[in-house]
Design a protein around this nucleic acid. Sequence first.
DNA 1: ATGATAATACCGACTAGTTGGTATGTTGTA
DNA 2: TACAACATACCAACTAGTCGGTATTATCAT
Lengths: 213, 213
Amino acid sequence: MTQTPLSPRKPDAREKLLASALRLIRTKGYTATTVDDLCKDAGVTKGAFFHHFRSKDDLAVASARHWSQITSALFAAAPYHLPQDPLDRVLGYLDFRKDLVRGEVAEYTCHVGTMVQDVHLSAPEIRDACHDSIFGHAQTLEADMEAAANDRGITLPGGAASLALHTQAVLQGAFVLAKASGDAEIVRDSIDHLIRYIRQIYQSPHVEGGDMS
Amino acid sequence: MTQTPLSPRKPDAREKLLASALRLIRTKGYTATTVDDLCKDAGVTKGAFFHHFRSKDDLAVASARHWSQITSALFAAAPYHLPQDPLDRVLGYLDFRKDLVRGEVAEYTCHVGTMVQDVHLSAPEIRDACHDSIFGHAQTLEADMEAAANDRGITLPGGAASLALHTQAVLQGAFVLAKASGDAEIVRDSIDHLIRYIRQIYQSPHVEGGDMS
DNA sequence: ATGATAATACCGACTAGTTGGTATGTTGTA
DNA sequence: TACAACATACCAACTAGTCGGTATTATCAT
């Protein structure tokens, strides 16, 4: 009946476990999320878990890569890439990040940012997978930041890569404060500060289009 | 020597356990740090642990308050309070934070920032203790930020409290990226971005036309 | 088509070790 | 003797991971 012609197998349990991993680990943290928790949430058995993953750590690495795929697809399809001016694309990205801050804390915080705190010393493989996810995402901002600087004949303080990483630091840190206070508004406020900083760097006081309402 | 007259004895094990908690939890995370780990590191037995703390969560709350005391003493004694200009005190604080970023990741990252990610939903008491530590520290910056704004006749975008929290967000987020990459330089770079932002806020003579209320 | 063969996907009881926590001491001091 | 400050032995629940087994599907010679 429902048979995908391209993939001969349908590893249903694997996808359900990865989806549960994103939800549970973001809520409880990696160490506090047990294999049984994941199996119960995904509606599969332990046999299925260890059929698809050699260990809990193996699932963590896979979940980090899965997170990268989910998020890169989300951002690639987002409308902030449309403006001609690369600076507007950068500012559009930050507005888009603000729009994503809705609902419960676990719904808008970062899976790999949460996980890497738990395992950055004990599990280097997971840490590296988280690193690749965060830093890979930051790289997608570099080109626009660099192009906007070239358009205006300015040099970015610290370089485009440093500014791109700074945006991720602001987001990750704002998530920490949101977890401490339960208040999502803190995230939006910090992004607003970042938007002002970037506007001032490029010395572009005007606003294109109807954002920031 | 130093004997408190109010307490009949000095609870040596309690202080050793709290010191171990700061070191171990910053390294491994709260959930991954076991009671046995703490006892072994502190050189005490489990009996001593549960004599001084009702539960592991009780120690976590105590460790968050202990962290607040340690850090508030550190910052209160720091030389950045000396300048006459409150803006110089704010910038001196950020330079001081940069100087603290030395050695291993666990040596300069934030105990309560690490812990709150682990427990923000499962243990509200610990979360609140972490919240008080972070937001209380942020409050110590507010007065100088506000005074510096009044001296210059400007209005801070979002208010002094928001700017103070933003500094903490930048620091916490930079710690996350440092854990992911093992590179302390990332923290100093993000603080440099924050210093530029704050300098620009206070240097701009005009009222920012704009976004916030 | 059909049946044999083999590979994958999944099940759930089981285990060896770990977990936070307790019960019952012992020791030093006032 | 009274009490705080420990120490030792222990436990029930939980942990990641194992293992023999089954159901479903793919491959392929006939």
